[in-house]
Amino acid sequence: MSEQGGPLVAVIVFPGTNCELDVVWALDCAGGRGELVFHDVSDLSRYDGAILAGGFAHGDYLRPGAIARFSPVMDGLRELAQAGRPVVGICNGFQVLCEAGFLPGALQKNAGLTFICAPANLKVERTASALTSLCTQGQILENVPINHFEGNYTADEATLRSIEERGQVILRYCGPSGDTSEEWNPNGSANSIAGICNEAGNVVGLMPHPERAMEEITGSTSGRPLLESFVESARQSHGAALGVK
C-alpha cells in the first residue's frame, strides 16, 4: 500500500484502451490510488490490485480481448489473482479476462445488434467478491451505465449451471424494483448476467461501468459501493504473498 492515499492499483492500458483515465479518477473518488500500467509490463508485484479498464484493446480486432490476452501484463495479472489480490475487468477488461481464461464464458454481440450506451439497474447477487463486499445482498444499484456492442454474456449450459450453483454471478440486470426478468435485460445476456467472479471472489468481470457512476454531477453514485468494495479489498490484500506460477 502506498504511504498515503490508499492502496495502489494498476490500471491496465492496452493500445486502444480508453477508460483508463476515468478509472484512475474513480479510484481516487473511492479512496484508492490508480496508476496507469502499460500492457508490456509483466511485473505487477508492487500493486495491491488491478483493474482492466474498458475500451477497445488492440482495436477489438479479431474479437474483443483475443489479442490482448497474449500481452506480457497477463502474467502479472495472473500472479496477482493467484495471490488473492483483486483483479477486476470492466467492459472490455471483462472480455479480456474471459478470453484469457481468468473467468468462464464469453461476451457476444448484443441481442439487438447495436452498440448500447444507456443506464442500467443492477441487482447484487453475491457480496463475497472483490467488487461487492460493501454491498448488501439484493441491493439495487440504479443507473450504472453500460456502454458496449459485445456485452451479451454466454456460456455452455454446464458452465452456466456451475457458476450459478457456486454463486459466481455477482450482478444481474434488473428493473427499478429488482425484477431480473428478460424485460430488463438490455443485451440478451444469459440469466441477465451483468457480472461474475471466480470461485475465490477476487477476480471479477462486469460489463457495466461503475467508474461512470461515482458522482452526483454526472448523474449517478451507484458505482461507488462497487469501487469502494474494490479499494477495501485491495487494502486488505496488501502484502498478500504472491503465489507461485
Partner: peptide, 14 residues
C-alpha cells in the same frame, strides 16, 4: 441514434 454513441467517456458529461 445517441444510445449507440458513447456519450459519457472522460466523465465530463453533466
Amino acid at each position: 441514434a445517441w444510445r449507440q454513441y458513447d456519450h459519457q467517456l472522460f466523465l465530463n458529461t453533466v
